[in-house]
Design a protein around this nucleic acid. Structure first.
Lengths: 360, 360
DNA sequence: TGTACTAATGAATCTGGAT
DNA sequence: TATCCAGATTCATTAGTAC
């Protein structure tokens, strides 16, 4: 094989990459610095301070400096990959466009971009943008000609209730028990990824026994998932504290018996449909009238999905409660629209939208 | 205004962009071609075919050509945008990384990347990759300093059942009735976007009357949504067949009545009421006592609208922050007065004054 | 032992108008 | 352009504490 596996190498990512033999690893998974360009402190509405990622390793002088760094480590990864190997990188809008362009320029062949939808992202506290609720992964083969990359299509389909796995994946953040803590009980690493994410990546794109290289190993999520799934790993990490934490963490992992690589089925909840989507879908229009069940009260719909009754305005639920002087109200069943057959609850419009939604 | 609106200009995108005056449009929405390495043939942006597609140099050359094209039209959009303007681009993994990098290099300031999750994507027929079930939009302000881009935060929150709108949006593809057909009943345009997507983009990031420029107008989805929502549009399109289709399509759109265009406004936009005005209106008197939410702390009101607590004095906000040792405080919600029904925030007094004000 | 409430927190490019 | 300051702003989840 020529390359030692199941090891963590402490040192500079690019220097250590250069020491690895060419065409020796099956998969690269990389979680590089995102080059966040943060302003000052950020306070929550309760005045508590957000614990920002302000580590020195995330600071770059310019896009040019970040690009140079990116092309260096990606270039070495290209060299180190077997011809039928592949690579994953995760990032956010701050860096993923630089990374994606670099991959294309270096001859990698993009297979998919994957969206990790976070179930519990941090909100946008100041109300200035959309909640940044996802990160992006890029999956790329070594080159255009390399059609022989590994993709366990059936395992993915099986894991997704027998329909093809899509390019949007939904996982919670890494919190609670899973999140490694330091001696003070604070998070040990600022950007630890959930093992479930790595589980899916590895299950999708490697075979048992494959060698997975992670050049930004951190506290070793890639190694933990690899060992659990019967794959081998090589981790590069600069910070000796993280190396020690990763070693201890991975030592406790008990690999799954080869026959037991079972995947938890995804629970289907009824997808939430905001009322605004009924307007966006054109099932109602701004200015349309809605009525209470008996038809005597009327409200008018606005373009953002709010209702107006006289001086009152707000969500379908809030306005429904107010006109009845009730503490609460289910607007979906209270408000009715005029159809051919008389008044019908707007809930039937929601049902229409749901019937067109993906099962995942 | 200096720029003609509600028009479609037939011609080359970049040439026609150059004719538009600087700082004249509020928003750009662009759906540029991503005919990059699709299928067997590799096409340059000018539709000339790249010969030796396996040749790495040619591959690079095609990226370079695409980048050049991208930077040209984006550069012109930057010039044409008002300083408080913003831009949206939609793309897939084939081109979005090139576009995102170009935006950053040209000085645009990225605000969000948005994922359009398709409810009904085309499956991956060969089972070789994940179902490509999303496209990516980038939302960017003209520059880092330009904080005054339009974001109708409250309207978005309202449209999403009173929780912040996230960066992942779910819409079906444009099919059925909405999809324009040619004389043979085939789809008239290969990549027609759903109007619901444009509805959300426009509602989120423009005001009524704003001018929206779409340099790749196609069959005019941007114009249709803009007209419906009481915004103005400028469309650039090379293909006269598309121009004709778009004109006919948009002519049939009935704009929403201006009164129905109003959406939930932000509190920031409400008229400022100095606390002293509450005293001038006689709703409180000098010497009255105000209390913190739980009632244990007390402050006294002075005739000029300042508060006094022991040795401390200052504005309602400053004193509120000081007594809590907090970095900041909204005095309107922190301080309470004694009413018949117990403690009530002084914000209700502000509301009384606002409701008596002329509706501007 | 359960239930109810409070506190903490996560890769975040996070205010804006007047002077 | 820099400074000042009014005042607007959060969702899902876990862990801990009180009753």
């Amino acid at each position: 094989m020529g390359v030692l596996a199941d090891t963590i190498i402490q040192g500079d990512c690019i220097e250590e990459l250069k020491k690895l033999p060419a065409k020796s690893v099956d998969l690269v998974f990389a979680d590089p610095p995102y080059n966040l360009q943060l302003g000052g402190d950020l306070l929550r509405p309760d005045n508590s301070k957000v614990d920002a990622v302000d580590d020195h390793w995330d600071q770059f002088e310019s896009f040019a400096a970040y690009d140079k760094f990116t092309r260096e480590w990606l270039g070495e990864c290209h060299r180190v990959l077997k011809d039928d190997g592949a690579l994953w990188v995760i990032g956010s809008y701050h860096n993923i466009f630089r990374v994606g362009s670099a991959l294309q320029d270096l001859g990698f062949w993009l297979l998919n971009d994957i969206v990790w939808r976070k179930t519990n992202p941090m909100p946008n506290f100041k109300g200035t943008r959309f909640t940044n609720a996802h990160e992006t992964l890029i999956w790329a083969a070594k080159g255009r000609g390399s059609r022989r990359y590994t993709f366990n299509y059936d395992a993915m389909k099986m894991a997704n209730d027998d329909v093809q796995m899509r390019s949007d994946w939904t996982f919670p953040l890494c919190t609670g028990e899973e999140r490694l803590k330091d001696e003070n009980g604070a998070k040990a690493h600022p950007t630890q990824k959930p093992e479930a994410l790595l589980h899916r990546v590895i299950l999708a794109s490697t075979k048992p026994g494959d060698i997975i290289l992670d050049p930004f190993f951190g506290t070793g999520t890639t190694g933990a998932a690899a060992k659990r799934l019967g794959r081998r790993y090589i981790g590069l990490e600069q910070d000796e504290k993280y190396v020690a934490l990763a070693r201890e963490r991975i030592s406790k992992i008990i690999p799954i018996a080869p026959g037991d690589l079972q995947v938890t089925g995804s629970k289907k909840a009824e997808p939430r449909v905001p009322f605004g989507q009924v307007l966006e879908a054109g099932l109602l229009s701004p200015g349309d009238a809605l009525y209470c069940p008996k038809g005597e009260r009327m409200a008018r719909v606005r373009a953002d999905g709010s209702l107006v009754v006289g001086e009152l305005s707000g969500s379908i639920h809030k306005v429904g409660a107010m006109v009845q002087s009730a503490p609460a109200c289910n607007g979906w069943t209270y408000w009715h629209f005029k159809s051919d057959k008389g008044l019908a609850p707007i809930d039937v419009l929601r049902a229409k939208i749901r019937s067109a939604m993906p099962s995942a």
